[in-house]
């Protein structure tokens, strides 16, 4: 391990058994974490070591008492499988996880930290878009996390005439626009959970904002001018 010069060479502390534990705990640096995952892909023994540690550590939760979640929780989960569900982004702690990806450099650093404990794929967003008017008079940022199917949108600039609304559309190549959200006026950020169907269309799609009657397009398709457009790109 090049980053641990003070460890004597004879101490076998870069043993795969230790690395696997560090991986499970989320202690590896981003680079080491990725390198480890790449090795794991082709190495069943390494995968078995990880699974063993996961089994061992999980017993630390064995005596945590069960807590029945509120009934509303299942309904919320079920609903989010079917259709875009709009949840206001949490304001108590500022932004949710996806929000960090929107906020610039420091945010990017945090997303990296967060990657380290993701057992599935990274918890950090995988796609992003800058939805802008040509003169940047209307500007939103978007980040998408494929694991949760959540699209985070952040207001940066722009306004519409009174009694009108901004409506967001996801447009896959050669397909009709699909409404994502009618922006609640004054909201700094929103998180939309995309349906599986919509989710599959995200890579390569375009996000567009149109100017619609208050409350959104009455037809289900854009009726007003497109005020901003952004290509969704992998991060």
């Amino acid at each position: 391990m090049s980053d641990t010069p003070d460890i004597p060479q004879d101490a076998p502390l870069d043993d795969d058994r230790i690395l696997a534990a560090e991986y499970v705990l989320g202690l590896l640096s981003t680079a080491d974490h990725r390198a480890f995952e790449a090795r794991m892909d082709g190495d069943p023994i390494l995968r078995a070591r990880v699974a063993e540690w996961a089994e061992d550590f999980v017993t630390l939760t064995a005596d945590f008492p069960e807590e029945t979640p509120p009934e509303t929780l299942w309904r919320a989960i079920e609903a989010s499988l079917d259709r875009p569900v709009v949840e206001p982004m949490r304001r108590r702690t500022g932004l949710g996880l996806l929000g960090y990806a929107l906020g610039g450099l420091m945010a990017a650093g945090l997303a990296f930290v967060v990657v380290n404990s993701g057992m599935l794929s990274p918890a950090a967003p995988e796609f992003q878009a800058r939805i802008a008017a040509q003169d940047n008079a209307v500007l939103f940022a978007a980040a998408y996390d494929a694991d949760t199917g959540q699209l985070a949108l952040e207001y940066q600039a722009g306004s519409h005439p009174p009694d009108r609304s901004f409506e967001f559309w996801l447009i896959a190549e050669g397909e009709a626009p699909v409404s994502v959200i009618v922006w609640p006026d004054g909201s700094p950020a929103e998180v939309v959970t995309l349906s599986d169907e919509l989710w599959a269309k995200v890579p390569g799609a375009v996000l567009a904002i149109s100017d619609e009657p208050a409350g959104g397009s009455p037809t289900g398709q854009p009726t007003g001018a497109v005020v901003a457009v952004g290509q969704i790109e992998p991060i």
């Binding site: 499970v24 989320g26 996961a54 999980v58 939760t61 702690t93 996880l97 960090y100 945090l110 930290v113 967060v114 404990s117 993701g118 057992m119 599935l120 918890a123």
Partner: peptide, 16 residues
């Protein structure tokens, strides 16, 4: 493990 990892992500974000 999925639950733990997700909760840890949240906790780290909160600490940050």
């Amino acid at each position: 493990t999925i639950a733990r990892n997700h909760a840890i992500d949240k906790l780290r974000a909160r600490r940050a």
